[in-house]
Computed example of a mutant assay.
Amino acid sequence: MIKLIECPRDAMQGRAEFIDTAIKAAYIDQLMRVGFDTIDFGSFVSPKAIPQMRDTAEVLSLLDMFKSRSKLLAIVANTRGAEDALQFEEIDYLGFPLSVSETFQQRNTNKSIAEALKTVEEIQNKCEVNGRTLVTYLSMGFGNPYGDPYSPDLVAEFVGKLSDLDIKVISFADTIGSATSDLISSLYSINASAYPEIEFGLHLHTHPDQLKDKVVSAYEAGCRRFDGALKGFGGCPMAKDELIGNVATENLIQILEEVGEKLELDKEQLTEAMKLANVVFS
Protein backbone atom coordinates (compact mmCIF):
# COMPACT_ATOMS: atom_id res chain seq x y z
CA MET A 1 0.00 0.00 0.00
CA ILE A 2 1.25 3.45 -0.92
CA LYS A 3 1.78 5.88 1.94
CA LEU A 4 1.73 9.54 0.94
CA ILE A 5 3.21 11.92 3.49
CA GLU A 6 2.16 15.52 2.90
CA CYS A 7 4.69 18.01 4.29
CA PRO A 8 3.28 21.49 4.97
CA ARG A 9 6.00 21.91 7.61
CA ASP A 10 8.67 21.54 4.95
CA ALA A 11 6.78 23.91 2.67
CA MET A 12 6.49 26.59 5.35
CA GLN A 13 9.68 26.40 7.37
CA GLY A 14 11.97 28.35 5.07
CA ARG A 15 9.63 31.29 4.42
CA ALA A 16 10.84 34.57 5.89
CA GLU A 17 7.39 36.08 6.38
CA PHE A 18 5.58 34.50 9.32
CA ILE A 19 2.40 32.66 8.36
CA ASP A 20 -0.44 33.39 10.77
CA THR A 21 -1.16 30.53 13.16
CA ALA A 22 -4.85 30.35 12.25
CA ILE A 23 -3.96 30.18 8.56
CA LYS A 24 -1.49 27.36 9.18
CA ALA A 25 -4.13 25.42 11.10
CA ALA A 26 -6.80 25.97 8.45
CA TYR A 27 -4.43 24.75 5.73
CA ILE A 28 -3.40 21.64 7.67
CA ASP A 29 -7.05 20.93 8.48
CA GLN A 30 -7.83 21.00 4.77
CA LEU A 31 -4.92 18.68 4.01
CA MET A 32 -6.22 16.25 6.61
CA ARG A 33 -9.48 15.94 4.69
CA VAL A 34 -7.71 14.70 1.55
CA GLY A 35 -6.79 11.27 2.91
CA PHE A 36 -2.99 11.41 3.10
CA ASP A 37 -1.50 8.71 5.29
CA THR A 38 0.47 11.23 7.33
CA ILE A 39 0.78 15.01 7.64
CA ASP A 40 4.25 16.34 8.53
CA PHE A 41 2.66 19.36 10.17
CA GLY A 42 5.24 21.07 12.37
CA SER A 43 8.39 20.85 14.45
CA PHE A 44 9.50 21.22 18.04
CA VAL A 45 12.83 22.92 17.45
CA SER A 46 14.50 26.13 18.55
CA PRO A 47 12.48 29.17 17.40
CA LYS A 48 15.79 30.90 16.74
CA ALA A 49 16.71 28.20 14.24
CA ILE A 50 13.29 27.88 12.56
CA PRO A 51 11.14 30.86 13.62
CA GLN A 52 8.31 29.84 11.29
CA MET A 53 7.62 26.78 13.47
CA ARG A 54 7.51 28.54 16.83
CA ASP A 55 3.71 28.10 17.02
CA THR A 56 3.54 24.34 16.36
CA ALA A 57 1.87 23.53 19.68
CA GLU A 58 -0.70 26.27 19.13
CA VAL A 59 -1.39 25.06 15.60
CA LEU A 60 -1.97 21.57 16.95
CA SER A 61 -4.54 22.87 19.45
CA LEU A 62 -6.57 24.34 16.56
CA LEU A 63 -6.73 21.19 14.41
CA ASP A 64 -9.94 19.20 14.04
CA MET A 65 -8.64 15.68 14.57
CA PHE A 66 -12.07 14.05 14.43
CA LYS A 67 -12.61 14.57 10.70
CA SER A 68 -9.50 12.84 9.45
CA ARG A 69 -7.79 9.45 9.36
CA SER A 70 -4.41 11.06 8.65
CA LYS A 71 -1.69 10.65 11.25
CA LEU A 72 0.49 13.54 12.41
CA LEU A 73 4.29 13.77 12.32
CA ALA A 74 6.43 16.40 14.02
CA ILE A 75 10.14 17.00 13.45
CA VAL A 76 12.46 17.22 16.45
CA ALA A 77 16.18 18.00 16.61
CA ASN A 78 17.02 16.95 20.16
CA THR A 79 15.74 15.03 23.17
CA ARG A 80 14.07 18.09 24.68
CA GLY A 81 12.09 18.64 21.48
CA ALA A 82 11.05 14.99 21.55
CA GLU A 83 9.86 15.34 25.14
CA ASP A 84 7.81 18.39 24.14
CA ALA A 85 6.26 16.58 21.18
CA LEU A 86 5.45 13.48 23.23
CA GLN A 87 3.22 15.53 25.50
CA PHE A 88 0.64 15.62 22.69
CA GLU A 89 -1.31 12.42 22.16
CA GLU A 90 -2.39 13.62 18.71
CA ILE A 91 1.15 13.18 17.37
CA ASP A 92 1.80 9.66 16.05
CA TYR A 93 5.29 10.07 14.59
CA LEU A 94 8.42 11.95 15.59
CA GLY A 95 10.89 12.66 12.81
CA PHE A 96 14.62 13.15 13.38
CA PRO A 97 17.08 14.35 10.69
CA LEU A 98 20.22 12.22 10.85
CA SER A 99 22.73 13.24 8.23
CA VAL A 100 25.18 11.15 6.29
CA SER A 101 27.21 14.38 6.04
CA GLU A 102 29.12 15.53 9.13
CA THR A 103 29.01 19.14 7.94
CA PHE A 104 25.27 19.13 7.42
CA GLN A 105 24.60 17.40 10.74
CA GLN A 106 26.38 20.27 12.46
CA ARG A 107 24.51 22.88 10.40
CA ASN A 108 21.14 21.26 10.89
CA THR A 109 21.19 20.17 14.56
CA ASN A 110 24.43 21.53 16.07
CA LYS A 111 25.61 17.98 16.68
CA SER A 112 28.23 15.64 15.34
CA ILE A 113 26.99 12.45 13.71
CA ALA A 114 28.14 10.49 16.77
CA GLU A 115 26.17 12.81 19.06
CA ALA A 116 23.15 12.64 16.75
CA LEU A 117 23.16 8.85 16.86
CA LYS A 118 23.08 9.00 20.66
CA THR A 119 20.13 11.38 20.38
CA VAL A 120 18.37 9.00 18.01
CA GLU A 121 18.78 6.22 20.59
CA GLU A 122 17.40 8.44 23.37
CA ILE A 123 14.41 9.53 21.29
CA GLN A 124 13.74 5.98 20.13
CA ASN A 125 13.63 4.82 23.73
CA LYS A 126 11.18 7.59 24.62
CA CYS A 127 9.01 6.77 21.59
CA GLU A 128 8.85 3.11 22.53
CA VAL A 129 7.85 3.92 26.11
CA ASN A 130 5.15 6.30 24.88
CA GLY A 131 3.80 4.13 22.05
CA ARG A 132 4.99 6.36 19.21
CA THR A 133 7.08 5.71 16.11
CA LEU A 134 10.35 7.43 15.27
CA VAL A 135 10.95 8.22 11.60
CA THR A 136 14.64 8.78 10.90
CA TYR A 137 15.48 10.85 7.84
CA LEU A 138 18.88 10.13 6.35
CA SER A 139 19.52 13.61 5.02
CA MET A 140 22.16 14.13 2.32
CA GLY A 141 21.31 10.50 1.60
CA PHE A 142 22.33 10.80 -2.04
CA GLY A 143 25.42 12.99 -1.75
CA ASN A 144 26.43 16.36 -0.34
CA PRO A 145 28.02 19.62 -1.56
CA TYR A 146 30.56 19.87 1.26
CA GLY A 147 33.13 17.31 0.19
CA ASP A 148 32.23 14.97 3.05
CA PRO A 149 32.58 11.24 2.38
CA TYR A 150 29.65 9.65 0.59
CA SER A 151 28.92 6.24 -0.88
CA PRO A 152 26.03 3.74 -0.96
CA ASP A 153 28.08 1.59 1.41
CA LEU A 154 28.23 4.48 3.88
CA VAL A 155 24.44 4.83 3.72
CA ALA A 156 24.11 1.10 4.35
CA GLU A 157 26.30 1.49 7.45
CA PHE A 158 23.90 4.11 8.80
CA VAL A 159 20.93 1.86 8.07
CA GLY A 160 22.63 -0.95 9.96
CA LYS A 161 23.19 1.27 13.01
CA LEU A 162 19.55 2.37 12.94
CA SER A 163 18.40 -1.23 12.59
CA ASP A 164 20.39 -2.06 15.73
CA LEU A 165 18.28 0.58 17.52
CA ASP A 166 15.11 -1.09 16.22
CA ILE A 167 14.18 1.90 14.04
CA LYS A 168 11.25 0.79 11.87
CA VAL A 169 10.93 3.74 9.44
CA ILE A 170 13.83 5.29 7.52
CA SER A 171 13.36 7.88 4.81
CA PHE A 172 16.19 8.57 2.37
CA ALA A 173 16.29 12.34 1.92
CA ASP A 174 17.77 13.96 -1.17
CA THR A 175 18.33 17.29 0.54
CA ILE A 176 19.96 19.10 -2.39
CA GLY A 177 18.54 17.36 -5.45
CA SER A 178 21.62 15.28 -6.21
CA ALA A 179 19.97 11.85 -6.52
CA THR A 180 20.03 9.95 -9.80
CA SER A 181 17.55 7.29 -10.81
CA ASP A 182 20.25 4.62 -10.73
CA LEU A 183 21.40 5.60 -7.24
CA ILE A 184 17.83 5.65 -5.94
CA SER A 185 17.19 2.20 -7.35
CA SER A 186 20.43 0.86 -5.90
CA LEU A 187 19.88 2.24 -2.39
CA TYR A 188 16.35 0.90 -2.15
CA SER A 189 17.05 -2.49 -3.64
CA ILE A 190 20.07 -3.16 -1.43
CA ASN A 191 18.65 -1.90 1.86
CA ALA A 192 15.11 -3.19 1.44
CA SER A 193 16.38 -6.71 0.83
CA ALA A 194 18.87 -6.53 3.72
CA TYR A 195 16.35 -5.07 6.18
CA PRO A 196 12.85 -6.30 5.28
CA GLU A 197 11.53 -5.25 8.70
CA ILE A 198 12.22 -1.57 7.95
CA GLU A 199 9.85 0.66 6.00
CA PHE A 200 11.96 2.78 3.65
CA GLY A 201 10.65 6.09 2.35
CA LEU A 202 11.77 8.76 -0.09
CA HIS A 203 11.94 12.49 0.59
CA LEU A 204 13.08 14.20 -2.59
CA HIS A 205 14.05 17.75 -3.30
CA THR A 206 14.27 17.81 -7.06
CA HIS A 207 13.63 19.74 -10.22
CA PRO A 208 10.22 18.82 -11.70
CA ASP A 209 11.60 17.56 -15.01
CA GLN A 210 13.60 14.88 -13.17
CA LEU A 211 10.79 13.76 -10.89
CA LYS A 212 9.11 10.99 -12.85
CA ASP A 213 12.26 8.95 -13.51
CA LYS A 214 13.28 9.18 -9.85
CA VAL A 215 9.87 8.24 -8.45
CA VAL A 216 9.46 5.32 -10.86
CA SER A 217 12.96 4.08 -10.01
CA ALA A 218 12.12 4.11 -6.30
CA TYR A 219 8.73 2.49 -6.90
CA GLU A 220 10.15 -0.30 -9.04
CA ALA A 221 12.77 -0.95 -6.35
CA GLY A 222 10.01 -1.41 -3.78
CA CYS A 223 9.54 2.02 -2.20
CA ARG A 224 5.95 2.60 -1.09
CA ARG A 225 6.41 5.66 1.16
CA PHE A 226 6.71 9.04 -0.56
CA ASP A 227 6.91 12.60 0.80
CA GLY A 228 5.56 15.61 -1.04
CA ALA A 229 4.29 19.15 -0.64
CA LEU A 230 1.47 20.61 -2.70
CA LYS A 231 2.68 22.84 -5.53
CA GLY A 232 6.28 21.90 -4.67
CA PHE A 233 6.66 24.71 -2.17
CA GLY A 234 9.57 24.71 0.27
CA GLY A 235 12.95 23.12 0.76
CA CYS A 236 15.55 22.84 3.48
CA PRO A 237 16.73 26.24 4.75
CA MET A 238 19.80 24.69 6.35
CA ALA A 239 21.15 23.07 3.19
CA LYS A 240 22.22 25.86 0.84
CA ASP A 241 21.42 29.48 0.14
CA GLU A 242 19.30 28.44 -2.83
CA LEU A 243 16.38 26.18 -1.96
CA ILE A 244 15.71 23.11 -4.07
CA GLY A 245 11.98 22.63 -4.29
CA ASN A 246 10.01 19.82 -2.72
CA VAL A 247 8.20 17.23 -4.79
CA ALA A 248 4.84 18.63 -5.88
CA THR A 249 2.34 16.20 -4.41
CA GLU A 250 -0.05 16.55 -7.31
CA ASN A 251 2.71 15.41 -9.69
CA LEU A 252 3.62 12.55 -7.38
CA ILE A 253 -0.01 11.43 -7.35
CA GLN A 254 -0.17 11.51 -11.14
CA ILE A 255 3.00 9.43 -11.49
CA LEU A 256 1.84 6.81 -9.00
CA GLU A 257 -1.55 6.54 -10.67
CA GLU A 258 0.17 6.12 -14.04
CA VAL A 259 2.03 3.07 -12.72
CA GLY A 260 -1.28 1.56 -11.66
CA GLU A 261 -1.69 2.56 -8.02
CA LYS A 262 -5.22 3.36 -6.87
CA LEU A 263 -4.78 6.02 -4.21
CA GLU A 264 -7.57 6.47 -1.68
CA LEU A 265 -7.70 10.25 -1.87
CA ASP A 266 -10.63 12.64 -1.93
CA LYS A 267 -9.90 14.54 -5.14
CA GLU A 268 -12.43 17.27 -4.39
CA GLN A 269 -10.76 17.99 -1.08
CA LEU A 270 -7.38 17.86 -2.84
CA THR A 271 -8.54 20.53 -5.27
CA GLU A 272 -9.61 22.72 -2.37
CA ALA A 273 -6.28 22.16 -0.64
CA MET A 274 -4.41 23.25 -3.77
CA LYS A 275 -6.48 26.42 -3.96
CA LEU A 276 -5.72 27.16 -0.34
CA ALA A 277 -2.02 26.49 -0.91
CA ASN A 278 -1.97 29.30 -3.46
CA VAL A 279 -3.33 31.63 -0.79
CA VAL A 280 -1.05 30.45 2.03
CA PHE A 281 2.11 30.68 -0.06
CA SER A 282 1.25 33.75 -2.15
Rank of each mutant, 00 (worst) to 15 (best):
T79L: 14
V120R: 03
T271F: 13
V279K: 15
L94N: 03
T119V: 15
R54T: 09
C7I: 02
C127L: 11
I113N: 08
V169W: 10
T133N: 07
F66W: 06
D174C: 08
E122T: 08
F96H: 01
L31K: 09
A25T: 06
V135M: 14
P152I: 01
L276R: 09
I176H: 00
D37S: 13
S61D: 07
F233C: 01
F96T: 01
S68N: 04
A77Y: 09
L138S: 10
L165Q: 14
T133C: 10
P196V: 06
S171G: 05
N191I: 04
T249S: 15
E264Q: 14
Q30P: 02
F18K: 14
E264W: 04
K67M: 04
D29K: 08
A16R: 14
L62A: 10
A26Y: 06
G234F: 10
L98N: 09
N78A: 08
M1F: 07
D148G: 05
E272Q: 13
G222C: 05
I23G: 02
A221W: 03
L62C: 05
R225N: 11
D213C: 05
N144H: 09
Q210W: 08
F142A: 07
V159G: 02
L183V: 04
L98Y: 11
A239V: 01
L154F: 06
G141I: 00
M140G: 10
I184E: 02
Q106L: 14
K240A: 12
Y150K: 09
V280K: 07
L138H: 06
P237I: 03
L60T: 02
Y188N: 13
V247H: 06
T109K: 01
E17I: 15
D209W: 12
F44W: 06
D166R: 14
G143A: 01
E17L: 15
Q87K: 07
E58P: 00
Y137N: 11
G235D: 05
I167D: 08
N251G: 02
Q87A: 08
K275Q: 11
L256E: 01
D10V: 10
A116E: 01
S151H: 11
K214Q: 14
E122I: 01
K111C: 06
P47G: 04
F158H: 09
T180P: 04
G81D: 02
E102F: 00
A25W: 02
P208M: 05
I198L: 04
T133L: 10
E83M: 11
K240P: 01
H203E: 13
